[in-house]
């Protein structure tokens, strides 16, 4: 095990395309639902405990060696919005490119061959963690953190928030991150016995509505 690889994988500068995505924050800002630091924090809390938890569960299961193509199905079933499925696969494809360079590994090559148009990002993330020698809990942390790190960075740009205030949001959500990552890793332990239904399936109606709304906007800074 090589825990330091988690720092590389979870670094916001890891070149996997995330900088152009807001995780729904741009639409929440455009629609006036997020106007300030407090709104950003509530947005992040909701996202973390729904789609963040789902991503963490999928990533932990992939890191535990569960069949990635079955996790692909599980991810589809947990992602009602076609815009979000598209985004997840695009980001998965971009992450796969970066991960194959960082941690060359037969399992990543096999997934790239099976899904040339991209696999769901959390599945790729979990597999990348596995190839980097990380544990399922590490993968869950990376996925959970990413589910709020992206929206925070995007909202700093969109609302010109004080970056210190925005970073404090992430710090305040640390206990929630611990909880989500632990729950995801615990669920992933049950997947070999109970199948993908053991994985979290948290859903947020406004994230689905907003993702489709955002996809129709002609003027936007972020791809999602």
């Amino acid at each position: 095990m090589n825990r330091a690889a988690l720092l590389v994988l979870a670094d916001g500068r890891f070149p996997a395309g995330g900088h152009a995505h807001s995780g729904g924050a741009e639409e929440a800002v455009t629609a006036g639902r997020v106007r300030d630091v407090a709104g950003l924090e509530e947005f992040c809390r909701g996202r973390l405990h729904t789609s963040g938890l789902v991503a963490a569960g999928l990533a932990a299961a992939a890191a535990a060696g569960y069949e990635p193509l079955l996790l692909e199905e599980a991810a589809d079933a947990r992602t009602a919005s076609p815009a979000l499925r598209h985004t997840s696969r695009r980001l998965g494809r971009q992450l796969l490119r970066a991960a194959r360079s960082a941690w060359p590994c037969a399992e990543l090559e096999a997934l790239a061959a099976a899904r040339p148009r991209g696999a769901h990002q959390p599945v790729v993330l979990g597999l990348a963690a596995r190839c980097a020698g990380l544990m399922p809990l590490d993968a869950a942390y990376a996925a959970a953190y990413e589910s709020i790190g992206g929206p925070v960075t995007a909202t700093v740009r969109l609302l010109r928030l004080d970056p210190f205030d925005a970073t404090a949001v992430l710090a305040r959500l640390a206990a929630d991150l611990d909880h989500v990552a632990a729950a995801a890793a615990e669920a992933a332990q049950r997947i070999h016995a109970d199948g993908p239904a053991a994985l979290p399936a948290g859903s947020a109606p406004l994230l689905d509505i907003a993702a489709e709304q955002h996809a129709t906007r002609a003027a936007r800074l972020f791809a999602s």
Binding site: R13, P15, R97, A98
Partner: peptide, 12 residues
Amino acid sequence: TAIRDDISANLE
């Protein structure tokens, strides 16, 4: 960033 630090989307 999109042309220098993280070129993923452009490569795609």
